[in-house]
């Protein structure tokens, strides 16, 4: 365990440095000019302000939103393995957003559709799990896999039946990418981030109490149903906004809260401070890797996050099984 305040400071610094690095690194911009106080040529200015900066902000906000949503979902479902992507929440968002996009909707409508889609997927999970014991994690994961597969194939069906070019590619939706970043995407996320984060942070006591079960949370004096609804809506909003602007970026919502948990324990207040910082750092770094590993070609960023996240998930699963058999 670390002193929490020192850790937040360290994470913020790491996030700042990797953001700067990601912004400045790569071909095309001669920073010697900036250093000497001379203005950049128009093309380079455009590159920096219209491509690099929105992309960086998008990656940053995505990670922070997914980190916050991950903390909320894991507390709500009382299950540390509850990853938004594995529960079908991203798939719901992606399907609804792709549907809206195919109907020619604008960015805001697409995001709202994504929000509605993720909310519906969450509700479906909630209904499917209504009768099972809350600590029964395998059922949660199984339901999630089924919903993810169903919605994922509907999405693929939708994209392949539509004429070419009317939707972004399947890879965009399934693996996620920041390559199409525009200022409108970044602006929407910059709006959603404080809303989601502040909304969740105000509920940190409830998020802790919910981990004791709904009954105990009620006995402790919390408005469980109203509060839990708010948490679910905020997490869906985060997932919807992220997925509709950059596709399904897997495992960040699992990795960030868990790394935070390993460092700081399971207090939701600390997690909500650390997980967004870690999530932002993860996505910014993953985006840089995705751009530079095979440069000038580019990988979908979800490939990187899933390559990191899936083995981590398996490790968690095995560790959980070992401890429950012990």
């Amino acid at each position: 365990m670390f002193r929490p305040s020192a850790l937040y400071l360290f994470l913020s610094l790491a996030l700042l440095l990797s953001s700067l690095f990601s912004l400045l690194q790569g071909s095309g911009i001669d920073f010697a000019l900036l250093y000497h106080g001379q203005p950049l040529p128009a093309l380079e200015q455009h590159l920096l302000l219209q491509l690099r900066l929105p992309r960086l902000l998008l990656a940053l906000c995505t990670g922070m939103l997914l980190g916050s949503a991950g903390v909320a979902i894991q507390a709500r479902f009382r299950n540390p393995l509850a990853e938004p992507g594995l529960l079908g929440i991203y798939s719901g968002a992606a399907l609804a957003a792709a549907l809206a996009l195919s109907l020619g909707a604008g960015m805001l409508t697409v995001s709202l559709a994504g929000f509605a889609g993720s909310l519906l997927a969450l509700l479906a999970i909630r209904l499917l799990l209504a009768r099972s014991h809350p600590a029964d994690g395998s059922r949660l994961i199984l339901c999630g896999v089924a919903i993810t597969t169903l919605l994922g194939s509907l999405l693929t069906l939708l994209i392949t039946t539509l004429p070419d070019g009317s939707l972004r590619s399947i890879t965009f939706w399934l693996m996620g990418s920041f390559a199409n970043a525009e200022w409108t995407h970044a602006q929407l996320q910059l709006l959603a981030l404080p809303l989601v984060w502040c909304g969740l942070f105000r509920q940190w006591r409830l998020l802790n109490a919910l981990q004791l079960g709904e009954m105990t949370a009620f006995h402790l004096g919390f408005e469980v149903h109203r509060g839990a609804w708010l948490v679910v809506v905020l997490a869906s909003l985060a997932a919807g906004v992220v997925v509709s602007s950059c596709g399904m970026i897997g495992f960040v919502g699992l990795l960030a809260p868990h790394l935070a948990r390993l460092l700081l324990g399971s207090d939701a207040r600390r997690l909500l401070l650390a997980a967004p910082l870690l999530g932002g750092w993860l996505t910014v770094s993953a985006d840089w890797l995705a751009r530079s590993l095979l440069a000038p070609a580019e990988l979908p960023v979800g490939v990187i996050t899933s390559l990191l996240g899936a083995p981590f998930f398996l490790w968690l699963l095995l560790r959980k099984q070992e401890s429950s058999h012990a």
Partner: peptide, 22 residues
């Protein structure tokens, strides 16, 4: 409650703190 909750990674002191949140 009949089935006392035992969330992963919690300290006893954290459990007791939940009782005085409000």
């Amino acid at each position: 409650e009949q089935h006392p909750a035992c969330p992963e990674g919690w300290c006893v002191s954290e459990l007791l703190a939940t009782a005085v949140y409000l």
